[in-house]
């Protein structure tokens, strides 16, 4: 069974919400990334998203754009991320997914990419510039190796929410509000309506991301669905702390975990 599925099965049995956290791989360096990821698991993260840096991350706000740039300037490539994933995999059996742009997979070669995902213990991929209609580009290869392609829906998906939600696996990534990644002070989305349609149709657990900054907001948002995704808020801690990030990131993740469980 894919580790994402077993994670949600366990959480459901415990009546808990999923906490999914994000870091850009190689920011500030790969050793720190490995330590930070393990620290996040240790402090209550259920799934970690490892961001694969891309030269032109069109779905990201400034925080993750800058992290991508720091990582690329440090020489990060996919072939350095796989061994890092392997190190993480040796220390934990929690779910690990890659968040990345389609061109990275396409140019690497879809079959080669997903076979390596399977080999190095990656459980899923999130591709923010691949809409549902173009998923055939990679999904046959992902299926072949048992890797989940995580679908995204956003409030602007409107009529398309139904069909996307109904044809998803792993978890459905619900984008909280229109726009790019990054911390937001307020939302304009009508969440009752948005999650109402999603839950009615979803074929897998639903988690919400984009703009969630801390424990209180996480708890509020988690009430609508099965879990929350936090990215930019963590990347900001890494930007401020560099190689000393594992500890403060761990403390932050613990505070969100406690918030979700309270």
């Amino acid at each position: 069974m894919n580790r994402i599925d077993s994670t949600f099965e366990k959480l459901r049995a415990q009546g808990r919400k999923a906490l999914i956290t994000f870091v850009t791989a190689g920011d500030p360096d790969m050793d720190t990334t490995v330590k930070t990821v393990l620290e996040m698991y240790e402090n209550g993260a259920d799934i970690v998203e490892l961001g694969v840096p891309f030269s032109d991350p069109i779905a990201e706000g400034v925080t993750i754009q800058e992290a991508s740039l720091r990582s690329l300037n440090g020489g990060t490539t996919l072939d350095k991320i796989f061994p890092a994933a392997e190190k993480i995999r040796k220390s934990t059996d929690k779910a690990l997914v890659l968040m990345m742009y389609l061109n990275t997979i396409f140019v690497y070669g879809c079959d080669k990419f997903f076979s390596k995902c399977a080999e190095y213990g990656i459980d899923g991929v999130i591709v923010p510039d691949m809409p549902y209609e173009e998923r055939e580009e990679i999904s046959p290869f992902a299926d072949k190796y048992g890797i989940h392609c995580i679908n995204l829906v956003s409030p602007a998906s409107r009529d398309r929410i139904k069909k996307i939600a109904a044809d998803s696996n792993g978890f459905l990534y619900c984008v909280s509000s229109n726009g790019v990644t990054g911390v937001r002070s307020e939302y304009k989305t009508n969440f009752d309506e948005f999650f109402g349609i999603i839950k009615e149709n979803a074929s897998c657990p639903c988690c919400v991301g984009f703009g969630i900054s801390g424990p209180e907001q996480a708890k509020k948002m988690a009430a609508y669905c099965d879990g929350v995704i936090i990215g930019s808020a963590i990347v900001r801690i890494i930007a401020a702390n560099g190689a000393e990030s594992p500890k403060p990131v761990g403390e932050f993740v613990r505070s969100v975990r406690d918030g979700l469980d309270s």
């Binding site: 923010p128 809409p131 602007a156 984008v175």
Partner: peptide, 14 residues
């Protein structure tokens, strides 16, 4: 060709 855009703009493209 194709339509490789983030989900948020997909509806607008359609």
């Amino acid at each position: 060709g194709g339509q490789y855009v983030p989900e948020t703009v997909m509806n607008a493209v359609c």
